[in-house]
Amino acid sequence: MKWAYLGVPVVAAVPLLLTPGQLTTFVLLGLSAMTVVGLSLLMGYAGQVSLGQASFTAIGAYTSGLLALHHTPPLLALAAAPIAAGLAAVVVGVPILRLRGHQLAFATLALQLILLSVLGDADWAGGAVGLQGLPYLSIGGFELDDDMDYAYVVLVGVLLVSLIAYHLVHSRVGRGLRALATGEAAAEASGVPVGAYRLLVFAVSAAFAGLAGGIYSFFLGYLAPGSFPVLLSIEYVVMAVVGGLGSVGGALLGAALVTVVVQLLTTLATQPGMPSYAPSVLSYAVYALLLIAVVLFVPRGIVPSLRKSP
């Protein structure tokens, strides 16, 4: 972990070197990374797959967006995003976490479809058009109005969720989580409240996604249900698996790798002469190929495979 601190100034210098277009990608990458750190905890430690993690991003984004439009100070609106997403996870998590394996994956997927359809029909959320004209984030009277500002907001966000995840994993609670990932009955018999810990990880992962969603709403300035498709949830799962589950470094690497590869292919697919369906075909195909390649060749994900086993 100590060496990881050395990476912070290096990464902090990156936005200064990017073109405006790349800066947007950088911000979106960072937002994905925040969500994937949480998802990786959930999948690695609670042994649960969520195919609806983007619904918590959406909940965070809409919470911030709606509050900001109703004249809540932006910073407060942003702080409400992870709280709302975390609470939503607790509410849906109690029944959902009784489900096992694939059932949970489908339940979370269903959750997202329901949420998208509700948001699409809700007048208070702007319906299919969504929310527009959101204010910029401002901190102490200083308005964050360009991409460079958000690059650093996102960096702080990534650092924050990484630190929270690391502290959580390396603690009494974290040992309990790692134990229940391999031997649920033995963990419970050792005094680990398995159900409560699962719910905790689900809520924490949702809160991370919610915080990312909150930043996203201020960054783009508009929100629509279409900003949070199911494909986004799948993308998060692929990022987590590629990087390696239960590893903060893996989550960050997975998010970076998938974002860059998809970006390159999108650029390729939008070249003149490519058919109109090329971008979507290429992105779906890339997720599938990445997932298959990782499962075949580095089943534990990239970062855990680089380390020796514990």
């Binding site: 040992r175 790692r178 134990a179 050792s190 005094g191 680990v192």
Partner: peptide, 19 residues
């Protein structure tokens, strides 16, 4: 149910202190 194989020996024992 065997030991928690993803943890070190000490960490395995430390899980027991949860109680």
């Amino acid at each position: 149910s065997p030991v928690f194989h993803n943890l070190s020996v000490t960490e395995n024992v430390m899980v027991g202190a949860h109680a």
